[in-house]
Amino acid sequence: MDLIQLKLFVDVARSKSFSRAARANYITQPSVSLRIKQLEDELGVRLFDRTARQVQLTPEGHALISEAEKIMEQCNHFAEYVSMLKGSPSGDIRIATIPSVGMYHLGEYLKRFLNLYPNIHFNLQYRNSGVIYDLLAAKKIDAGLVAYPEKRTGLDVNVFAEEPLVLAVNRQHPLSAKKTVSLNDLEGQDFISFEENIPTGAAIDKILKQHSIKVNYVMTNNNIDAIKHAVEAGLGMAIVPALTVEQERKLKTLAVIKIKENIPPRPIALLAAETTASIPLNLFKEVLIGTQENKN
Rank of each mutant, 00 (worst) to 15 (best):
N115E: 14
L116A: 14
L64C: 03
S17D: 09
I227F: 02
I198T: 05
I132Y: 01
A13I: 08
K140D: 03
K16M: 14
D156K: 02
A147T: 08
K252W: 03
E293S: 10
E187Q: 15
H211T: 00
I95M: 14
S100V: 08
L64K: 11
R171H: 05
F113T: 04
S83W: 07
E73Y: 06
L243H: 14
F122R: 08
F48I: 06
I4V: 10
E162M: 04
P265D: 12
I259Q: 07
I268H: 01
F9E: 00
N25Q: 15
I198Y: 01
S88Y: 09
E67D: 14
I198P: 00
T200D: 04
T180K: 15
G44N: 11
F191N: 03
L114N: 07
V82P: 01
H211G: 06
K37G: 06
I141G: 01
V181T: 08
Q125Y: 05
E286R: 12
T244M: 02
N158T: 12
S66Y: 09
V287M: 02
Y148V: 03
V231T: 12
S100R: 05
K7D: 13
S278M: 09
R35S: 15
L175N: 07
Q189R: 12
P265Q: 05
K86R: 14
H211I: 05
V159L: 05
I207K: 10
M72Q: 14
S83M: 10
V55W: 06
G290S: 07
R266D: 10
K250W: 09
R171K: 14
A168M: 10
K252M: 10
A137S: 08
M219T: 08
K140V: 00
Y217P: 07
G154M: 04
G154V: 03
M103K: 10
P99K: 05
Y117G: 07
T244R: 09
E293N: 06
I4E: 11
E248K: 11
A24F: 10
E196T: 08
I259K: 11
E248T: 11
N222I: 08
V12H: 07
K179H: 10
V159G: 01
A242C: 07
M72V: 15
A24N: 13
T97K: 00
V101P: 00
K252I: 07
L186E: 09
I204S: 03
L288R: 04
P164N: 08
L85I: 14
I289A: 06
V146G: 00
Q56C: 04
K209Q: 15
K140W: 04
M1P: 03
R127H: 04
I65Q: 03
L57P: 04
Y26A: 14
R94A: 02
V10I: 09
C75E: 13
I259D: 10
A79G: 11
L110T: 12
F48H: 06
